[in-house]
């Protein structure tokens, strides 16, 4: 009895030692040399692995930072400037601050503004729908409403509004990682700068059709009339391919264009409500 126990313990111990040696040798043989700073950088990253920086994940981003030693081309949109400062400290280099951004949906083709002309009956994915045809409304440029952007968002910052059939961005949750921008097959979503209190002015339409055609498809389409460009005192608005675009780096939020737009395609959001509404 005692001998059995002793033998058992002895064999198991021996086995343990042998295996430990094997494991050590294997680990030593297949050891991959990696810059230890990659680990250090990874530690200060948010760890969301969202891919918003354009890399496959946080580790890939850390690797990219270490390899290029260039923080102008590597930016973590989730962690923002705070994180980038920490990364810079780890690597011992300088970093410039970037303005905070937010995703903006540039289509206002709600069911009311843009009536349906046919019914889509395939898989509810914008990519599948876009590959098939121009969409179930008269506008071949607008939102397809299947929510690929919602599915792409890792932060729960986009949801479909059931009344309008359009996605809405929660600007507090949005990290401007750009996943939705890449997911949208119609390129409707754009990252724009996050002004104080979230105020911004933008053209909520990307329809490149001629004015009459665009207007027929959607009540609130940009018809490319150019009135906004004329009235803009800062030269921030350009009209190309029958659609206006407001350069957010030049826009000073004066809202002159908003009043000028004949179709109401230019939106001004998050401005304080004036007590005496001007008529």
């Amino acid at each position: 009895m005692t001998t059995t126990i002793i033998w058992t313990i002895a064999i198991l111990t021996l086995l343990g030692v042998v295996l430990a040696v094997v494991l050590y040798l294997v680990a030593a043989k297949f050891r991959v040399e990696e810059d230890s700073r990659i680990d250090d950088v990874e530690k200060v990253l948010p760890g969301a692995n969202c891919g918003g920086c354009g890399n496959a994940g946080c580790r890939a981003f850390a690797k990219s930072c270490v390899e290029t030693m260039d923080l102008d081309r590597n930016f973590c949109p989730v962690g923002g400037n705070g994180t980038m400062k920490k990364v810079a400290a780890v690597l011992g280099i300088e970093v410039r601050e970037k303005a905070p951004m937010v995703a903006v949906v540039r289509c206002n083709g709600s069911c009311e503004n843009r009536p349906k002309v046919n019914d889509y009956g395939g898989y509810a994915s914008c990519r599948v729908k876009a590959a098939l045809y121009s969409g179930d409304t008269g506008c071949p440029f607008g939102c397809l409403g299947c929510g690929d952007c919602v599915a792409a968002c890792q932060f729960g910052a986009i949801r479909m509004n059931p009344d309008t059939g359009l996605p809405e961005v929660d600007q507090d949750k949005c990290t401007a990682c750009g996943a939705c921008v890449r997911a949208c097959p119609k390129n409707i979503i754009e990252l724009r700068n996050k002004c104080p209190r979230g105020m911004r002015v933008f053209v909520s339409c990307v329809n490149k059709d001629k004015g009459a055609v665009a207007r027929k498809a959607c009540k609130v389409a940009c018809i490319g009339c150019g009135k906004c460009a004329k009235v803009c005192p800062h030269g921030a608005i350009t009209v190309e391919d029958n659609v206006a675009y407001i350069d957010f780096t030049k826009c000073k939020l004066c809202k002159k264009c908003v009043a000028e737009c004949p179709t109401g395609a230019i939106h001004a959001v998050n401005f304080p409500v004036l007590k005496n509404k001007e008529e």
Binding site: V117, D119, G121, G122, Y123, V128, A131, L132, D136
Partner: peptide, 8 residues
């Protein structure tokens, strides 16, 4: 009626 459209 509106036409139904879906992939083959």
């Amino acid at each position: 009626n509106r036409l139904l459209v879906s992939p083959a």
